[in-house]
Design a protein around this nucleic acid. Sequence first.
DNA 1: CGTTCCATTGAGATGTGTCAATTCAAGTGG
DNA 2: CCACTTGAATTGACACATCTCAATGGAACG
Lengths: 251, 251
Amino acid sequence: MSVPPGQADSADFIPCAHDYQVSCGNCRLNAICLPLALESEDIDQLDRIIQRSKPLQKSQHLYRQADEFESVYAVRSGALKAYRTTDDGREQVTGFYFPGEILGFDGIGNNAHASSAKALETSAICEIPFSSLQKLSSLMPNLQRHFFQLMSREITEDQQLITLLSKNSADERVAALMLSISTRNARRKLSATQFRLPMSRVDIGNYLGLTVETVSRVFSRMQKLSILRVDNKEIEILDPAGLRHMANLSH
Amino acid sequence: MSVPPGQADSADFIPCAHDYQVSCGNCRLNAICLPLALESEDIDQLDRIIQRSKPLQKSQHLYRQADEFESVYAVRSGALKAYRTTDDGREQVTGFYFPGEILGFDGIGNNAHASSAKALETSAICEIPFSSLQKLSSLMPNLQRHFFQLMSREITEDQQLITLLSKNSADERVAALMLSISTRNARRKLSATQFRLPMSRVDIGNYLGLTVETVSRVFSRMQKLSILRVDNKEIEILDPAGLRHMANLSH
DNA sequence: CGTTCCATTGAGATGTGTCAATTCAAGTGG
DNA sequence: CCACTTGAATTGACACATCTCAATGGAACG
């Protein structure tokens, strides 16, 4: 399954997102994905278990609910959504994943994925086989702790979403999501004020427990208040303070 | 901090919940808490790091949000709620914890508890210092995997709650909670149809994203339909199938 | 036997959902 | 390159589930 090294990039060229043969050691996302004090030989070991052979086209699945769990996945480029299908066939979007973020942890518990993951746009993925990761974690305490931390943060984020759904108005929910995306963009050294949403209004509404119409109305309202400029999926945050105020959470 | 062995129980007496010096090896909850193929000497090692010196009175805190994270905790008897306090001072109950269940995982991510945990009634707790657990996990692959699984299941459960909050009506939410408690009771060999709720209506409403009044009305409605008998905190499920139907989820 | 907290019930207000129509954007085939 | 189709987003009018406010009832506790 390994892919032959592509045409040689010039040496000083920063590896672009589509060069999916880049190793963790010189991946520009490693500050997000692996903020670890690992020896370079440790990184080599990790590199060796990671598979980078999975560029995904828009709307293709990375895994599906109830698939056997084998790996967790780091997003290298693009964006994905994770969603659960309920017994009566409805869908619930449980998260959006951007470059540097890791998904698939919900599959460990029962050896089967508890959600499906679908590409929102063309996405490059690093696959991390979990059994290898477990072995490596036993040998590298830092790595073990790192993955405990990643899972713990996923729990914390889910709990934030629970709070959002349980306590906040439509305005607050949408504002909070815009702020979240903005923050995560900044972490990747991208603009915190201008970006293109990779997901549809339906996905946003589904994620936030709102209908499409309500999401749309909130965007219109925000635009009228000059908090956001909205042009279909292109978003510009005109008034970050106003947006934070609307989100009603000062984090 | 260690407590002297209590008055000797007669040898054939099943250790009761208040005998908090029982070891994991003969704890009647270990099928829930530690369903592991561990050598008895492994269990001994685990026993040695676990501290059982924390009986908690009703409304006392086990830990508070932003406290330094040191341990995760297994409930031995009683019940607790976990809740987050938002920036603007409101509370969100994120979970209820019953005997055999483990809480505190959300603190690993940032070395500080992301929620508070409070006893809903007198509760006995096993404290599991996380640094010891990490070391032990490196040596015992089964144990490492077990804790990855526990955290993964917490993620899955949070995502179920997200779905519930996002997609389900008040009736469905309350019904789902009653079913969850019933199932967890059954796992502990207690009645699946009769139990006493340890939490208040306020807590239930808070957890489910509803007001107290709505929770109360749902209970009244369920009683009118002969699905439940409700006498303050005493619950009897009269029509389990009807309850499942009302919850609108067949799991 | 008050006092206090918790739970229940009712009446009315409101935010968001539902239904429906329109516009806009993207892709397809003639 | 232009019609045509299709899906996504917006906007409006109305309905309804849940919230809010308020009063009452009941259990627990000193």
